[in-house]
Computed example of a mutant assay.
Amino acid sequence: MGKGQNLIINGSGSYPGGIYDKVSIRGEGTIVNDVESSVFHVYGTSEARENVKTGSVKIMGEADVKGNLAAAETLVMGTMIVGRNASLKKIKILGLLEVGEKLSGDVATIKGSISVKGDVEYETFDSSGGFDIKGLLTADKVKIALRFGQSSAEEIGGGQIIVKRKKNSILPFGKEEGTLTAKVIEGDDIYLENTTAEVVRGNTVKIGPGCQIGLIEYTTELKNDLSSTIKTKTKV
């Protein structure tokens, strides 16, 4: 992308956008125009007032991108806010990611938390943290480990969907378990624990402990834990 020109911000101030090799912000920096770079690293506080396109994003501090963000590799250990769409091919979230519109890519690993006002679309979505998705979460493989708090999505769709309780290693004696809430969960192969959903549709559906389901529609097989509540079951 860049031709060797770097943008290194150690103090504070506003800087123009443009094409760079490396952008590194250790102080408090504002980038006023579109920026394109091979590397975009924030250890302090940054604001990009328009769009960011980069190869590698690493956020150890706080980053606010007002427009769209596109990146091949993303690691968030601090806080990142994207005002519009985030096209992030491979992400690992250990801190907090907030997206104002759609989040999409190939592989998502969520150990911290994400908040997305639109849809989330990945090939593989693996969460052992928490999420609040106002739209549709869709992936070929959805794997959710519920450690603490409440995760929610309007709808969840995928090939294989696995939702399991996971003991919180930080608070091993804590009684609170994580929960998942969704209006509709639809997939080929579904296994759920600690899940509240209005409708679950699948080929093979297995309901583990701690679930409250309004309607289940299945085509091949349904198994359910007797401790879970299912109002209506229909083979279609």
Rank of each mutant, 00 (worst) to 15 (best):
L94N: 12
V200Y: 06
E221V: 08
N51E: 07
G100M: 10
E73C: 05
V39E: 14
N68S: 06
I8S: 09
I170T: 11
E36W: 03
L88H: 02
R26K: 14
T181H: 12
L136S: 11
I230D: 05
I9G: 09
A145W: 05
S46D: 02
I9K: 10
E186Y: 03
V32E: 13
G27F: 04
T204Q: 07
A145T: 00
N203A: 10
K233F: 01
I216C: 06
G187S: 06
E177I: 03
N33Q: 15
D188A: 07
N33W: 03
G95I: 00
K117Y: 11
G83V: 06
K111H: 07
L215N: 15
N224V: 01
I230L: 09
L222F: 10
G18Q: 13
S113H: 07
I110G: 01
E47S: 11
K111Q: 12
A108F: 06
R26N: 15
T204Y: 07
T138H: 11
I162P: 00
L215A: 11
I91V: 15
M80Y: 07
M1W: 04
N85E: 14
V236F: 07
Q160V: 11
S152Q: 12
S169I: 05
K206Q: 06
L75Y: 11
G29E: 08
G158K: 08
T204I: 13
G67Q: 06
L97P: 04
K166R: 12
D21Q: 15
S227V: 02
C211W: 02
G17A: 08
T138L: 03
L75C: 07
L88K: 02
V42F: 09
F173P: 02
M60Y: 15
L69T: 04
A71Q: 05
S37H: 05
N33F: 08
G202M: 00
R49Q: 09
F173K: 12
L215H: 14
I19A: 14
I156V: 14
L171Q: 09
G208I: 02
G118D: 09
S37E: 07
G174Y: 06
Q212K: 13
E198M: 04
K183I: 08
K53W: 00
K183S: 15
M80K: 02
I114K: 03
S104T: 11
A153L: 05
G13D: 10
K206C: 00
G214N: 11
V116W: 09
S227P: 00
L215C: 10
E50V: 06
A108R: 03
A72T: 15
S24P: 01
Y15F: 15
G105W: 02
D126R: 05
L75K: 14
T45P: 00
S46E: 04
A182D: 11
Y43R: 12
T204F: 03
T220A: 12
G27D: 03
V35A: 10
S12N: 12
Q5M: 14
V52W: 00
G149L: 01
I161L: 03
Q5L: 14
G27M: 04
F148Q: 12
G187K: 03
V120D: 04
N68A: 08
V65G: 01
A182R: 10
K111V: 01
E198D: 15
D64R: 13
T79F: 10
F125R: 04
K141N: 13
G135R: 11
D189C: 00
